[in-house]
Every structure is written in structure tokens, then in C-alpha cells.
Computed example of a mutant assay.
Amino acid sequence: MTGTRRVRPGGGSRPAGRRAQILRLAADLFHRHGYHQVSMTEVAGGLGITAPALYRHFRGKPELLHQVVGGGLDALAAALAPVRGTAELCAALSTVAIEQRPLGTLWQRDARLLPPGRRAGLRRELRADVRLMAGLLRADRPGIPPADAELLCWSALSVYGGLSNHSFAPPRRRFELLLREIGTALLAVSFTGAADRPPVLAGPVADRPGERREELLAAAVRLFHERGFDNVSTGRLGAAVGMAGPSVYHHFDSKAALLAAALERSRERLRQEVGHALDGAAAADAALAAGLRAYIGFARRHGHYLGAMLSETERLAPADRKAAVDFRRDFLRTWVGLLRQVRPGYDAAEARIRVHSMFALVNDGVRNRPHSERADLADCLERMARAVLGL
């Protein structure tokens, strides 16, 4: 590895000594607090060294993030290298998910903040891993179309990466067995006969009071999700809706207030659309089915909303962050409760892991091109989500 590009180790080698300690600590800090919330001084202090000593290993925080994410991908590649068949594949992915738990969050939330060239290089590495996985799957399922195999493999990475979003876990052995079971069920899904189901478009926001405010909220969600809160200026926000940057302050007191309002609007829409579907069914199994379709529909229309909710919540002021976290916990608790009614054999830990995995699968699936452009995407996502939930 160098400061400008990464050389992927061929045998799963690991950096030695102090460098390895830095990477482990940085991965944990970035995962728990977010890239922009962690300073190089904090990383150095966590190891009892000075900031200049840290800079002897890494020239800056972007390089440190690049190497942290790249190290997780190296571990994935090393685990996949000896795999033969989908059973071994699920076992390898389970091990990586447990041992490289921050990787999912680092990839989805923080890697997008890297310079475009470095981000593209890491994605090329991940694409190579997916091609390898898809080849193993097609060897076991010779009739599966290549595009279907790749969609299943990307989805498997989302499911296993979704473990980054929570900290609880059963005992290691049970955890591995559960993850293998989920992965095996997912990779067995067939898309044969999947129906084309175009997304229902949201109604226009024009010609109503506060139109410009609504436009700003929508633009903010998209830009914050794509670029990160700290990388979006008021000038860029204003330009996205055809106004001068300072004019943003006519509608919001600060960029932080705009973020808080945008995420609050996201929660309102999610509560209204999906909560209504969950509450409108008479039985738990019907509620899960209706809620799943509603969530997939919401995700297809509002992928940026979900992305920003996951990636930018830590940038909120404490009171706003608490409201966002409380909503997420309540939303998760509802789904876990319904799943346990339908599957009484699941304890709380298993149900939570399955629900987290389902959300990760859908949230990533609506944004992962070119598969996100499939006409039958909604049906494919529903089939995979049901497999992950054990339905």
C-alpha cells in the first residue's frame, strides 16, 4: 500500500505493529462516531502517541480512511480466495461480518467522503469480489442468469454489512450459524416470474405554500446523502434550487437547521407511508407483508431520505439526534415484534438481526446500479427480504 493507491495483498497479509493498531482504532472510532467527528489527534491519543507520530504512518485523515476501508476489503478478499461453493461462501461471509464489523458502515457512510479516484478504486475491488461470488453461485445454480447472480451477491454483502448498524450479538457460534442460514436462504432465491412493478411516483410539491422550502428540503437530503453534510455548502444548496446561497437563510437559520428539518420530514413520510400499512392489517403476517411492500415502495421513491437518515444523523444537535434515534428504535421495535408474532421460535436477538439485515438489503438495493434500474426490482427485493426474514 502507498499514500496514493492501494496494492491488495495476495495472501490476506495484515500490516504489522503500530500501523495495525492505528488502523484498528481508527476503524472503531470512524464506525462509532463518523469520519468527520474524529480527529487525527483523537486517534493518536487513543494509542498514547503524538499526532506527529501518527502522521509518520499516514499523511492525513483521508489516507487513513482509505486504508481503513481498504483493509476491510482486503479481509473480505482473503476470506473469499479459498472458497469453493456457496456453502463455504456463506461461512466466509459470516466470519468477515463478525470480525470486520465496522466495514459495512465504513463502506456505506464514510467511503463516499473519499476523493472520487480513491472511491472508484475501492469499488473496483469490491466489484471483483462480487464477480467471484457470482461465479461460485452460478456453478452451484447453473441456470441462474448472470444479472440475477450478481444481484443476489450484492444483496448478500448488504445483509452481512448490515450488522454494522447494531452492536448486539448472540454467542459467536450461534451468531455464525444464524448468518449462514440467512445467507443460504438469500442465495437460494429465484427471480423467475418476478413481475415488473414500477415505483409509484410521489406527488409534485409545486403550487403550494412553502414550495421553495420543500425544494430546499428535497435538495438537501439528496446532497447531504451523496456528499456528506460537511462537504455541502449553502452555495451548492442554493444552486440546486435556483437561488443564491445566502438566500437559504431566509428559510432556515443554519445549515444544521436545514439538516434537522430534512431528516424530520423524512421520518414523517416514513411514519405516514409505512406506519399506515403496518397499522392497517388485521393480523401480524398481513401487517408484515403490507409493511414490506410499503417500505420497498418508499425506498424506491425516497432512497436519498433513507441514506441521509443513516449517514447524517450523527451530525445533528443532541436533541434532534435523540429524536432521530428514538424514532429508529421504535420503528425497529415494531418490526421485530411483528416478526416474532409470525415466527414465535425467534428470540429477540435473532429477530433484530433479521430485521436489520432486511432493511440493509432494501436500502442498498434501491441505490446499487445497474441492478436498481431493473423493472422487476420491487418484486426481487420483496422475495429476498422475505427470505432474510425467514418467511
Rank of each mutant, 00 (worst) to 15 (best):
Val7Ser: 09
Gly45Gln: 13
Val342Gln: 04
Glu214Thr: 10
Glu181Tyr: 06
Arg293Phe: 03
Ala257Pro: 02
Leu381Ala: 05
Ala195Asp: 01
Gly121His: 10
Gly337Phe: 04
Glu314Met: 08
Val130Phe: 15
Arg340Gln: 03
Ala277Trp: 07
His371Phe: 09
Gly34Asp: 02
Ser372Ile: 04
Val96Phe: 11
Arg329Leu: 12
Tyr160His: 07
Ala75Asp: 14
Glu214Lys: 09
Met1Pro: 03
Leu23Ala: 04
Ser94Gln: 11
Gly337Thr: 09
Glu350Gln: 14
Pro171Tyr: 10
Pro62Glu: 14
Phe229Leu: 14
His31Tyr: 14
Phe191Asp: 04
Leu292Pro: 08
Gly34Ile: 02
Arg374Pro: 01
Ala147Leu: 10
Ala289Asp: 15
Leu292Asp: 12
Arg208Glu: 12
Pro82Met: 00
Arg14Ala: 15
Thr105Ile: 15
Arg265Leu: 11
Ala261Leu: 14
Gln341Leu: 09
Asp376Thr: 04
Arg8Gly: 08
Ala360Asp: 06
Arg32Val: 15
Ala79Arg: 01
Met309His: 15
Leu263Gly: 08
Ile182Lys: 05
Arg301Lys: 00
Ala375Tyr: 05
Arg329Ile: 13
Arg56Tyr: 10
Tyr35Ile: 01
Gly135Asn: 04
Glu99Trp: 12
Leu216Gly: 12
Val248Phe: 14
Leu361Glu: 02
Ala16Met: 07
Pro344Trp: 02
Ala156Arg: 00
Gly345Phe: 02
Arg24Gly: 07
Leu179Asp: 01
Pro198Asp: 01
Asp320Thr: 09
Asp140Gly: 07
Ala299Ile: 01
